[in-house]
Design a protein around this nucleic acid. Structure first.
Length: 501
RNA sequence: GGGCCGUUAGCUCAAUUGGCAGAGCAGGGGACUCUUAAUCCCAAGGUUGGAGGUUCGAUUCCUCCACGGCCCA
């Protein structure tokens, strides 16, 4: 944009401003023009040396009595959130990521022109403030300013200064408005970052290395889910967005990396709900020479660590050890049906009907078990609980149980009525893995669109030899929901998936 | 996919049986040198989500559509 012509700017006089009194954008643009006409750059390039408001507040804790003025020069930067008074002295509330601080602006310290510019600031403008620290007579820590700098003019009005932004749809679609208006939202996403940082630190300190495996995959796998499909132009072939990182991470274990983790997005082409966003953040780790018991122990320690990083203070008790019970026992407790006693499909279906529950006519034995788990057990698992020892039919990548026939060494972690983790002693016998893929192929042929595609290159990797390995996937968004007390995944994802407006 | 609820000023919310669509905040003009949801005075601000229908008259009743929330599948 070229420099504005003062002659043109003068056309934007007070009469014209008055004419468009409720044209918020127009009013703000007029002020922008006026600043430029005064030779003031409304979008300067930098503003060095601003202190964090939160840090400044802490450092003045217990310092300065009410009405007292300090000597230290300070500089803060943030968004103008409120203004009180005007005549010859005004109070501004400036908000940065760490908090809010009052600024006292006086005409005798700023001079008439600068004070006039302070009065013409709009709520939402980004400003820098220089001055000295003081406490008002009522004890409010404040900056007594002698220089206010426009850092970026805001051309749109911010949401209500007191009620914030309430409309859920707008909060999700325009998260920046939510972040500007609602301190709670800012805090939530800072907490989310602390949780994720604590997870990385925990694993790094335990000798894991963070790796990055393909998001775009020629074949998807590692979970029961439908994928997103895309076209790779240069290769002229269809690719999939990953639904899990599992198979590539185990290839890293085959390669000798011993302890690996990946923290990133998975994509599942399925419905949206308060617990499902189609792209979501997953943590998976794999550790050589471990089994699912070792993984469970690490999982409960990791979650407890994350809870403390989040300053969690709710009703859930994450301290290890968590409750452990078998899947069989959990379903028996939850609905009085012993799924292992009824190992045949029709037999189980009869038992379920006898209990008065519906049975979908085409569900397999495994699907019936999964249905019982999801409907009757999962909602009751509030305190952290490991359900252990799953049927082999539900777990194509888990190693058969060392003592229980027909079961695999697998657990799922449940908390707050939600599944948050899924783990197993990894199947490393390539021939058995091949047989499991064959079973999946048969399921696919029978119409199961969540079955595992046959992955020959994964089998080749296993044939090279994978050490005994334990692995896990943890849903990070759900973990954040639990640790921040949110009921919807959309509250903890910055920009959740939304239908086009 | 089904059920229920919602959509009104920039934001937060009202509006009686179907009878001129209102307030607070923000924004505009003015007063104010310790306010903090500042206060006081004045003026302004609307295609009531969209399209139809019923009616003399629709924010209100009906149908369809869009978007969202909650619950169910």
């Amino acid at each position: 944009m070229s420099g504005s012509d003062p002659a043109e700017v003068s056309a934007s006089t007070d009469e014209e401003v008055q004419e468009t009194a409720t044209d918020h954008l127009g009013m703000r643009r007029a002020k922008l023009d006026r600043l430029r006409a005064q030779g003031i750059e409304p979008f300067p390039h930098d503003f060095d040396g601003a202190q964090s408001i939160g840090a400044l507040r802490s450092s003045y804790e217990g310092r300065l009595d009410a009405g007292e003025e300090g000597q230290e020069r300070v500089r803060i930067a943030g968004r103008l959130a409120a203004r009180r008074g005007s005549g010859k002295a005004a109070f501004l509330d400036v908000v940065d990521r760490s908090g809010r601080l009052q600024v006292h602006a006086r005409i005798d310290l700023l001079g008439e022109d600068a004070y006039e510019r302070v009065l013409s600031l709009d709520l939402g403008d980004l400003i820098g403030v220089d001055g000295t620290m003081m406490r008002t007579r009522r004890g409010e820590l404040s900056v007594r300013t002698d220089a206010v700098t426009m850092l970026a003019k805001s051309l749109r009005p911010p949401p209500d200064k007191h009620h914030g932004l309430q409309d859920v749809e707008t909060r999700y679609r325009k998260r920046e408005l939510d972040l500007v208006a609602n301190e709670e939202t800012r805090e939530l996403f800072m907490t989310r970052a602390k949780i994720i940082a604590s997870v990385r630190k925990f694993l790094d300190e335990d000798g894991f290395i963070e790796v990055e495996t393909p998001v775009l995959q020629p074949l998807y796998g590692g979970a029961a889910a439908r994928p997103f499909t895309t076209h790779f132009n240069a290769l002229d072939s269809d690719f999939y967005l990953r639904i899990a990182t599992e198979l590539y991470l185990k290839r890293c274990i085959v390669g000798g990396l011993e302890r690996v983790y990946e923290l990133g997005k998975d994509f599942r082409n399925e419905g949206l709900s308060t617990k499902h966003n189609p792209e979501f953040t997953m943590l998976e780790w794999y550790e050589a020479h471990s089994d699912y018991e070792d993984v469970a122990a690490r999982c409960e320690r990791l979650v407890a660590t994350a809870a403390s990083a989040a300053n969690y203070s709710g009703d859930l008790d994450f301290s290890p050890p968590w409750r452990r019970l078998t899947l069989r026992q959990a379903i028996l407790d939850g609905c009085g049906i012993d799924v292992i006693e009824h190992r045949e499909r029709d037999e189980l279906a009869a038992a379920i009907k006898q209990r008065g529950f519906d049975v979908a006519p085409n569900d397999s034995w495994a699907q019936l078990v999964d249905e019982l788990l999801t409907k009757h057990v999962e909602p009751t698992l509030i305190q952290p609980t490991f359900l252990v020892d799953y049927p082999v039919e539900l777990s194509p990548f888990a190693k058969r149980h060392r003592s229980e026939p027909g079961l695999v060494e697998r657990f799922e972690a449940y908390c707050g009525g939600m599944e948050i983790a899924n783990a197993f002693s990894e199947l490393n016998d390539p021939d058995e893995q091949r047989a499991r893929f064959e079973t999946q192929r048969a399921a696919a042929a029978a119409g199961d669109d969540e079955s595992q595609p046959f992955d020959e290159s994964y089998l080749e990797a296993l044939e090279l030899g994978m050490p005994p390995t334990g692995g896990i996937g943890i849903g990070i968004d759900r973990l954040v929901m639990l640790l921040t007390g949110r009921q919807s995944i959309r509250e903890v994802v910055l920009f959740p998936a939304m239908r086009e407006a």
